[in-house]
Amino acid sequence: MNSIQQITGMVFIIVGLGFDIFGCIGLLRLPDVYNRLQATTKCVTLGTCSILLGAFILKGVSTTGIKAILVAIFLLLTSPVAAHALARGAHKSGVKLWPKSVVDKYEQDGN
């Protein structure tokens, strides 16, 4: 029982670290601000939530475990809001889309 708990927690932590690395590669590779924001806000948020879930599984229902679950819920609620605000600010400050982009309805509507 104890070893199953350990192995499940370790698997969650390894998956979370992998998604964190993929998100950071996306931050380096993708061409403009909006695509980078997509990669980081998805991969890094779920990767960190997976690490926190691993901590909850390793520690069980204790002080550390319940705090980890609270931090995970908080991150899932606030990180998309921050991404939305940053994308809006970048567009208002005049950052252009990637030149090969297909369409920009937001600029056509005069914002």
Binding site: L27, L52, L86
Partner: peptide, 28 residues
């Protein structure tokens, strides 16, 4: 652009939360 730096700093903040979570497991 400044927007890229803002995105990278926001990402850094979320990564540090994961760092604290890993640090809390072995030390208890």
């Amino acid at each position: 652009t400044p927007a890229d730096r803002a995105v990278a700093i926001d990402t850094l903040g979320i990564l540090i939360v994961g760092f604290c979570a890993i640090l809390s497991i072995p030390t208890g």
